[in-house]
Design a protein around this nucleic acid. Structure first.
Length: 415
RNA sequence: GCGGGUGUAGCUCAGUCGGUUAGAGCGCUAGAUUGUGGAUCUAGAGGUCGGGGGUUCAAUUCCCCUCACUCGCCCCA
């Protein structure tokens, strides 16, 4: 490593990118609050079993994508590859079952050791929403609606499609899985290598295979719908009906699946075709068996995660921040007065930028660069007269303003 | 983890069929304008041509390895 560089799959988030990321998070959090979600912040690392158990020992993420290490105390630790497991662990650790139902919003970095691509980094950032303790389809409707509304607020709902499916309750799901294994085993000879592997580890995922040969076999595979018991059918119908009422469009996709056993009922993904292979921008589902599996009280849950990098790439530019006022002191006496005046203006709510160096010309150039609305120029001349020069950087004119009238005069500037 | 593409200035990119001091635009610094920005003009700084090794009289250019980015697969947000 001749030149110091960031670790593969990690990126510095600066400037325009930082503004866009901030915009995604702010928009999502604001939206989540309107839906009654409270903030939660859980540790960035957990004991490895928290993730290994919840995501499934056989899943790719656990088998080969986790950042796991032994810490100095000998503990087996893993950087979070997702949010759900940590939030469920926090729910158990803090005895929150008394407060059900609970609705949480979280955001922050997550880590997966994957081959990086655009929209897929090793350190990436997610927004996350979870509803715990609601058995009925109302939670499914609300969590999906929240996702749609965030996309709407970001201005990208129209470029996304909501893919929707149900896995049914555990009984339906098990019956279906068995039927699939039987069916695909009969066609094993013609399945791709990947899918033969999936047959053992995660048969539902064969439905989602992109291999052409697999797809020919999948066409005639049994459908989940045939295995849904009446309760599961009613549940899914209620979810769809709720989305219909809210006029949230969706595409029923019987091949959208979740491999792990504690997933039940609703599975969904908001997908875009604008990001190549990394099309899922918000995805989630119901995980009624998860908290029990972690050793907590049996508690239903549903949630989703959204990729901030992906959302930020799709979303329109972040709104322009408030334009600053540039404060330009000339000379030592002015510097002293400026220090105090700047502070006062900032306390009054103005955005004030004061360059730390440079002559008048230099500082006005900087003012221009930071898109300042106006400049306040204070030199010996002004001090002698007890005024300050207010220069309108849009119009170009300037005027003398009494020192105690600056705030009032600044408010008069047309934006 | 598998298969392909790409790495030249802070940024976007030319270029060298292997040959003396590697270029442009934008940006940056300074001056024209010692207290007045945007525009213009002038000058300047900035590159171990991603890194290492090999072939060669000579490598930024050809070969190998490696690192990073990127496209697809896998997986997923």
């Amino acid at each position: 490593m001749a030149k110091i560089q960031s670790v593969r799959g990690t990126h510095d988030i600066v400037g325009e990118t930082a503004a866009r990321h901030g915009h995604v998070v702010a928009t999502a959090r604001d939206c989540a609050r309107r839906f009654g979600f409270g903030d939660i912040d859980v540790p960035i690392f957990e004991f490895t079993p928290v993730f290994a158990r919840t995501m499934g020992e056989g899943s790719d993420v656990v088998r080969k994508e986790m950042y796991s290490f032994t810490d100095r105390g000998g503990e087996d630790i893993t950087l979070r590859p997702e949010f759900t497991a940590g939030i469920c662990r926090a729910f158990i650790s803090n005895g929150m079952q008394q407060d059900l139902p609970l609705k949480f919003f979280a955001h922050g970095p997550a880590f997966r050791y994957e081959r990086p691509q655009k929209g897929r980094q090793r350190q990436f950032h997610q927004i996350d929403a979870e509803i715990l303790g609601v058995e009925g389809p109302g939670a499914d409707i609300e969590i999906i609606t929240l996702g749609a509304e965030i996309l709407h607020d970001l201005g990208i709902l129209d470029s996304c499609v909501l893919e929707l499916n149900t896995l049914g309750d555990p009984d339906s799901r098990k019956d279906y899985r068995d039927a699939l294994v039987t069916y695909f085993s009969d066609h094993k000879a013609r399945l791709s290598e990947d899918s033969i592997d999936r047959l053992r580890r995660n048969p539902l995922r064969i439905l989602d295979s992109k291999d052409e040969g697999d797809q020919k076999i999948v066409v005639d595979a049994p459908l989940m719908a045939e295995f849904l018991n009446p309760e599961s059918q009613d549940f899914f119908a209620a979810v769809c009906a709720g989305l219909d009422v809210l006029e949230i469009g969706y595409n029923l996709n019987p091949r959208l699946v979740r491999g792990l056993d504690y997933y039940t009922h609703t599975a969904f993904e908001f997908v875009t075709n604008a990001l190549g292979a990394q099309g899922a921008v918000i995805a989630g589902g119901r995980y009624d068996g998860l908290i029990k599996m972690l050793g907590g009280p049996p508690t239903p849950g549903i949630g989703w995660a959204g990729g901030i990098e992906r959302l930020a790439m799709l979303a329109a530019h972040a709104p322009e921040p408030d334009r600053p006022i540039a404060f330009v002191p000339m000379g030592e006496a002015a510097e002293k007065i400026a220090l105090k005046m700047c502070h006062g203006l900032r306390r009054d709510g103005f955005v004030v930028d004061m360059a730390f160096r440079g002559n008048l010309s230099r500082r006005l150039k900087r003012a221009n660069k930071v898109n300042a609305r106006a400049a306040l120029i204070l030199g010996d001349d002004e001090i002698a007269k007890g005024i300050i020069t207010l220069r309108d950087l849009d119009g170009g004119g300037q005027q003398d303003v009494a020192l105690d009238g600056v705030a009032a005069q600044l408010r008069l500037l047309p934006s």
